[in-house]
């Protein structure tokens, strides 16, 4: 018995699942056509202040007249909306997409925090049994909708605030027409450096362009030189050392450095 393989079939496919996926990708590309620079803010480690750095860098850029958006890709631990004072009020549904909230200094924000009831974890309707099989797909789809279904409009910079780990970066990279530039945040410790190194290497293997390293929480209890070490290893600049109590000048300088780096 000869059975043709999947790739040997040539008849039209009414379901068009592959075409539906391609349409989703096109939608993302079209939506991002007005975005000058997309910067993924990442770290392999939790608690290093990615969202904090993202929010303040975004505000500092907005204060000098740049049009800035922040997409909170940390779906399970979203904080960007609070940091940018954009938690309240419904998101407007328009014919062509969802309008982002306008946060502090005019930064446009979309975050799962704006959608979830206070204190509720992110959960999806569906069969609980073996939910691990589909939950990842649902989260990836939510990320796709945050990118592709939001009317970001014309932006100079769109920051994508990633959660710790590698998975969300990989989902993002799959979605985008080209791998994003990555801004990497670490704290000074060697332990943080180890985690960040793996994440950054994985991002570079996916074609990402390193913008530089931000060493956060400098001068306090955390001791080490992870920022310098990573910068040297990856041949990328150490963009800023952010102290425990940064002044507006620190953010202004970081924003300027980021702008020049991209």
């Amino acid at each position: 018995m000869h059975i043709r393989t999947y790739h040997e079939l040539t008849e039209p496919d009414r379901s068009g699942l592959a075409a539906q996926i391609m349409a989703q990708r096109r939608r993302v590309a079209q939506r991002l056509a007005g975005v000058g620079r997309l910067i993924a803010v990442m770290s392999g480690k939790g608690g290093v202040g990615k969202s904090y750095v993202t929010a303040h860098a975004a505000r500092a850029l907005a204060r000098v007249g740049r049009r800035v958006g922040v997409l909170d890709a940390d779906l399970n631990g979203p904080t960007a909306a609070r940091l940018l004072e954009a938690r309240d009020g419904p998101l407007a549904v328009r014919e062509d997409g969802i309008e982002p909230a306008v946060g502090a200094d005019g930064v446009r924000v979309v975050s799962m925090d704006q959608l979830l009831a206070d204190g509720r974890p992110l959960a999806f309707r569906g069969p609980e049994a073996e939910s691990f099989v589909w939950r990842g797909a649902a989260e990836a789809a939510a990320l796709r909708e945050f990118v592709g279904d939001v009317t970001w409009g014309a932006l100079d910079v769109l920051f994508v605030d990633l959660p710790p780990g590698l998975a969300r970066f990989q989902e993002l990279a799959e979605l985008l027409p080209a791998a994003p530039a990555v801004l990497t945040v670490t704290i000074p410790t060697a332990e943080s450096g180890d985690a960040v190194r793996r994440a950054l290497r994985a991002a570079l293997e996916r074609g990402a362009r390193p913008l530089g390293i931000v060493e956060n929480m400098v001068g306090g209890a955390f001791v080490g030189v992870a920022g310098d070490t990573l910068a040297r290893e990856f041949g990328t600049p150490l963009l800023a050392r952010v102290p425990w109590h940064p002044t507006p000048d620190v953010w202004h300088q970081l924003a300027e450095t980021i702008w020049n780096a991209v």
């Binding site: 539906q20 989703q24 419904p90 959608l115 979830l116 309707r125 789809a141």
Partner: peptide
Amino acid sequence: GVQIGGRTIPAQPMEMVRGMVAGGKEDAF
């Protein structure tokens, strides 16, 4: 975010999030 048999109406904005997220704010949108 795909439909077997093909789509009869175009995908709506944040269709999956609005339809599948449980425990969302009632007035999120």
